[in-house]
C-alpha cells in the first residue's frame, strides 16, 4: 500500500501506523494531521469568539492528536468505538472548552457557549483527557538522560527482557557490557522513581 499521500491513509492504516511505532508512526501522525486539520480547525474556530486567545486552534489540534495517540497506545480507543474524525472532534471539544473555561468569564461561557456545547454528542466524555498534569512528569523523564530513557522505554513500553536490551545496546556500542546496562537501569529506575513519588 502506498502511504505517501495523507488522503490515501485510511483510519485503520493510521491507527495501525501509530501502533507500529518508529518511522511508520511518524508518517501516520503527519498523515493524520493533514487529513483532519482543516475540519478540526473549522470545528474549533466555529466555536470561538472574536477575542484573542493565547492558545490557537492549531495548538488544540496537536494536543488532541497527542491525547488520541496515548489512547490508541493504551488500547482505550478502537475504531469500533467511534470514527477517527468524530473521536478527534470530541477530544478537541473537551480541550477547547477546558481552555476557554479558564479564559472566559463564567457569564460569557454560560450565555455564549454552553448552549452550543450542549448540543454536541458526549459519547466520548471528559475522561478522555487525563486531569493529571503530565507535563511535569514528562519533563522529569526527559531530563533523565537518553540512555536511561532508552533502557526504561525498551523494558516497560516495548516489553523487552533485560537480556535482549543488553544484547542490543552492547551490539550498538552504547554500553560495554551486560552488567553496565543492568547497573545503569537500576540507578536510573531508582532515581526516577524517587523524583516521581516525591511529587505524585
Amino acid at each position: 500500500m502506498n502511504f505517501s499521500l495523507s488522503k490515501q491513509w485510511t483510519d485503520e492504516a493510521i491507527v495501525e501506523g501509530i501502533l507500529t511505532g518508529g518511522r511508520r508512526e511518524h508518517e501516520a501522525l503527519v498523515a493524520l494531521y493533514k487529513k483532519f486539520h482543516v475540519s478540526l480547525e473549522r470545528f474549533i474556530t466555529h466555536r470561538s469568539s472574536d477575542r484573542d486567545y493565547a492558545k490557537q486552534p492549531e495548538d488544540i489540534i496537536w494536543e488532541a492528536i497527542e491525547a488520541f495517540v496515548v489512547n490508541v497506545k493504551k488500547q482505550s480507543y478502537s475504531l469500533k468505538d467511534a470514527a477517527l474524525e468524530t473521536y478527534l472532534k470530541s477530544i478537541c471539544k473537551n480541550l477547547w472548552f477546558r481552555y476557554i473555561s479558564s479564559e472566559a468569564s463564567r457569564d460569557e461561557r454560560q450565555t455564549k457557549y454552553m448552549a452550543d456545547w450542549d448540543e454536541l454528542d458526549d459519547d466520548v466524555s471528559e475522561t478522555l483527557i487525563e486531569k493529571e498534569n503530565w507535563a511535569y512528569y514528562i519533563d522529569i523523564v526527559s531530563k533523565a538522560g537518553k540512555n536511561c530513557r532508552q533502557i526504561l522505554d525498551m523494558r516497560l513500553i516495548d516489553g523487552f527482557s533485560m537480556q535482549e536490551i543488553s544484547q542490543k545496546l552492547v551490539a550498538d556500542g552504547v554500553f560495554e557490557s551486560d552488567q553496565t546496562v543492568r547497573n545503569t537501569k537500576s540507578k536510573c529506575l531508582k532515581k526516577i522513581m524517587e523524583m516521581i513519588n516525591v511529587n505524585f
Binding site: E66, Y137, L156
Partner: peptide, 26 residues
C-alpha cells in the same frame, strides 16, 4: 502501581516526542 505510573509517564513522554517531531515536520 508506581511502576505502572512510570510506564504511563514514559509512554506519554514518547508520544510527546513523536507528536513534536510530526508537528516540526509539518
Amino acid at each position: 502501581n508506581e511502576t505502572q505510573r512510570l510506564r504511563e509517564i514514559l509512554l506519554r513522554s514518547r508520544v510527546r516526542r513523536q507528536v513534536d517531531a510530526a508537528r516540526a515536520e509539518i
